[in-house]
Each structure stands twice: as C-alpha cells, then as structure tokens.
Design a protein around this nucleic acid. Structure first.
Lengths: 147, 147
DNA sequence: CAAATATAATTGATATATCAATTAATAAAA
DNA sequence: TTTTATTAATTGATATATCAATTATATTTG
C-alpha cells in the first residue's frame, strides 16, 4: 500500500515550500509589473552585478539548464531589458548589458523581492534557518555523490 | 550591491536540493525505463492506490496545476499506462484505471524510488528531518497566510 | 422548473525544463 | 600547422508550469 505516496516523503514538503514561495513571490511581482517573472528578474540582477559573467555561469547560479537560460535571455532582449553583443575577447561568448529599462525594473522590484523573502521567513529563527541549510546541503551532496 | 543575489537566500538551497534530487531520481529511473518521468510514475501510483480520486485531487496532492495534470494524464493514456472513461455518477469526472502495462511499470520502479529517497537522505537524522519538515511547513504557511 | 452559479476538466498561449544534436570558436595535440 | 578535442551557446523536440478562457455537467436559488 502507498509505498511511494509522495505525501510520506520529505521531498513533498520541500516541493511544497518552494512552490508556494514562488507562487507567492510571483503574485507580488505581478501586482507591480505583470510582464516579468521572478527568474527573469534574478537573471537581470545577476547580469547587473556582474556583466562579465558568461551565460554558462549564470545558468549554474540559477540552477538552470543552458538552454533555458538562452531562452530567458532571448526574452529579456526581446522585451528591451537587456542588450546582447559579441564579446571580442572570446567570440563564442556574449556581452550582456542591462538597458535603462532593465535597470529601472530591477530597481523597482528589488524591494519587493526583499520583502517577499522576509515575509516567507517570518517566525523562523536563525538557528532553524541554519539547520535547514545544513540538511538541504546534505541532500544535495547525497544526490551528487551517488553517480 | 547584490541585494537580491539568490545565493544569499535560503530559497537557493531549497531550490538546489529539490532540483538535484529530481535530476538524480530521474537519472535512476531512466536507466530502467527512459520513457517515463518521476511525476508520471507518482501520478500512476496515486491512481493505483485510489482509483476514485478526481483529477483535481491528484493535482493538489502533486502540487500541480489542473492543466498540467490533464496533460500528464493524456500522455499516460497515449503511452498505454492508463485508461480513461467517463464517470457515470458525475459525468464531469473521469474514471482512471491503470492498464496491465501501468501496473507493471509501477511495480518495476517502486523499489527504485524507495532506494532513491533513501540514498538522498543518507546520514540525516530523524531529528533533522523532523525539524526540516517543521521549518518548511512554516515557510509554506507564511506564503499562504499573506494573501 | 428556469436562470444563475459552481464545479471538473480541457484548451490555448506563453514560459520554462531537459535532453540530444548542432554550430561556431578556441585550445590542445600530433 | 593541420587535425582533434573542448567549450559556449543555440536549436529542436518534448514535457511541464501557469494563466485565462472555454466547455460540459451539476447544484443552487428565485
């Protein structure tokens, strides 16, 4: 009976928490601007802070497949938040730069993201957060080491 | 600077853990059968255990949008794992039933899923798991209460 | 009962995830 | 230096996520 019922696994709660947070965060963002996603914002922010980073690095930071990141960037360019030009020092790479519109939306939505995280973590002690992080790291490591 | 760098947020670690687990689990499943996904398996298993459940309920258990679940079920039917017929007691609903092929794949892959979860949680104490669950529940609740 | 409302599921549009294959450029090796 | 291998990014195919709109059936209410 129900040997692999997802509700009996801790992964159920991990999945639930991250999905509820994303839904919540996206809802708050959409109130201000219904045309940008949380991932697009985080991507823009990373590029803003480190314009030299390759798409490969961005993908790793955001836990995204390279293909996904390519498409996120395409969209950001199409929407006018980002400009892309060839990197002359390595012509396989691109130079990514926020447009004025890109800077504007990051500035506008940064406080919202900070607020979202704060609210999502209300009433959780630093000790609990630290232990959460440690346990999650163990799971990540377990999955990576057994290959 | 880097005010909303994802790497500074606990959500980064949650995201990392669940994604690494899913990648790991899928890899193990694909060795046995490259044509089924973890979510499809969990869906089949839930239907096997409770054939009367409506798609709406399955979606809630699996944290999926109704639309997503409709398409997962479509695929399972197309692949011959599932049969779908109209529920006469409420003609808006469907009667979902595993085929022999559906039962076979669930039986074949159940031990793999159990093993995956075990390995992913190696060296994590029950106390830590319990506290992980509690903290994650708090996050979920925080996101839901602020609406 | 007829009209209004609610519910279960689907469909369409768009974004993202994942895998495999491909392209273009660079680096390493023979 | 030509071949070979590696690397960065894209593309195509398919699966899933999310939102809004729609369809079909049930339920409620006037």
């Amino acid at each position: 009976m129900f040997e692999i019922d997802p509700r009996k696994s801790i992964f159920y709660y991990i999945d639930e928490a991250i999905k509820e947070y994303r839904k919540y965060a996206q809802k708050k963002i959409s109130v201000i601007d219904p045309n940008i996603t949380l991932d697009q914002l985080l991507t823009l922010n990373l590029i803003k802070e480190d314009p030299d980073s390759a798409q490969k690095e961005l993908a790793q930071i955001l836990f995204k497949d390279y293909a996904s990141l390519t498409r996120i960037i395409e969209l950001l360019v199409k929407k006018g938040y980002l400009s892309r030009s060839i990197n002359q020092s390595d012509r396989r790479k691109f130079l990514l730069k926020l447009t004025a519109k890109g800077y504007a939306i990051v500035d506008k939505l940064t406080p919202i993201i900070i607020e979202n995280r704060k609210i999502a973590l209300e009433n959780i002690s630093d000790t609990d957060l630290k232990s959460l992080k440690t346990t999650l790291k163990k799971i990540t490591d377990n999955c990576n080491s057994d290959l």
